[in-house]
Design a binder for these strands. Structure first.
Lengths: 217, 217
DNA sequence: TAGTGGTCTAGACCACCCT
DNA sequence: GGGTGGTCTAGACCACTAC
């Protein structure tokens, strides 16, 4: 059919996608094995493997040894989000970024923080709250608990001039993390900071990374 | 150093990760080229390539022909979200899922919908609103505009028994989409549906796929 | 146990693009 | 021009697991 003179894994990937979308291989059905497809496309099995691996990464097919490759019954919508540094996010909107540190103190964290981090309740932690502005309009309120033991040298950082968001991303390598989104009503103090009506809906991003946490509003 | 008897791309991947995290290769620096690393690890260049491609996919390094592989100055936090079918999301929480169709009519969509879809304003569209429940508690309100021209056969579907969410995922293959999250205050009608106080903050997911849209609350 | 995907190799050619 | 990553090949061995 589609004689593509170039046997690139991309062209094979597209062709497989087409067959799945057009129900030539309906959901739940078994695809031919790699060797057969390689013969059909006139290429090496490795090339077919690359194309099919891409489909599996996208959540379109399920591949298992011995069982073969099967079109997923319920294709997973997989979304990739890039979480940039807040300053860059503001600047990408062609707005001027400004940052103000509101509070910096070493104290004990509330139980909900320590328990989520799996840390002893009596560990002293660094608590930072700050505001980010875009063109002088309140953009984001940052409320962050940091475990100093996990980030050597953090005591010496002057967070009046550098945002914690930015400093940590560049200076605290992390190996993993967790993120959650939610919505809540702003209490009076927060609403005032954001120059929003009391009780306004705010978008909340909760993050935990490695040994440090960073709840943001 | 780390003599790993197994030269798998995974072990190389981990080793490269370690060197980046420990600042052996600081942000902005140039990594050795593939051939050199292959020699160091005693494996084929292909294997190193696989490991480094994984780093690039994760947004940790920037790879360019001739320019080499460079550690990103500002590592991108890349998050992958899986958007499941609502029924499965409820059932994963060990709750019982229930679904009710509130409204189904063919009518003209408001301008904000047609303009975002790039559709003529006088195109008749299918408008569905429905509720999803988890253990009889309101879980999610679904408000969806569908372009019937893009989904053949949709007129015949009985959305009283099948949720639009589920039917579309299984029957309307799409090639791309867009998604956005936000927060808003519920108006009185919505608050009532969700059995929440008037003005409560709700989490909003806005989706557009291919030729159909699906705003959800 | 046999068929499938997962991976590795050694070699090759090419596209790109910095110097 | 020449070095770098991108990709393809043909072949091989292995891990897993459905049968």
């Amino acid at each position: 059919m589609n004689e593509l003179e170039t046997t690139s894994w991309r062209s094979i990937h597209l062709e497989l996608l087409r067959r799945i979308n057009e129900r030539q291989w309906p959901p739940g059905s078994l695809l031919p094995n790699e060797a057969d497809l390689a013969a059909e496309f006139g290429c090496a099995r490795t090339t077919v493997n690359r194309a099919m691996r891409e489909l599996a990464d996208a959540g379109l097919v399920d591949r298992r040894r011995r069982a073969g490759t099967r079109v997923m019954l319920l294709p997973i919508s997989r979304v990739v989000l890039d979480i940039p540094i807040i300053r860059l996010e503001v600047e990408q909107r062609h707005a001027q970024w400004r940052y103000t540190l509101l509070e910096r103190q070493v104290c004990l964290a509330p139980g909900r923080i320590t328990s989520r981090l799996g840390i002893e309740r009596d560990t002293p932690m660094l608590h930072l709250t700050s505001m980010h502005f875009a063109d002088n309009h309140p953009f984001l309120h940052e409320d962050r608990w940091i475990n100093p033991a996990a980030v050597p040298g953090i005591e010496a950082v002057d967070f009046f001039t550098v945002s914690a968001n930015e400093w940590l991303i560049q200076n605290a390598p992390y190996t993993g993390g967790d993120i959650a989104f939610s919505a809540m009503n702003a209490d009076r103090a927060l609403a005032e900071l954001l120059a929003a009506p009391d009780g306004a809906a705010v978008f909340v991003v909760d993050r935990i990374t490695w040994n440090k946490t960073e709840p943001i509003t």
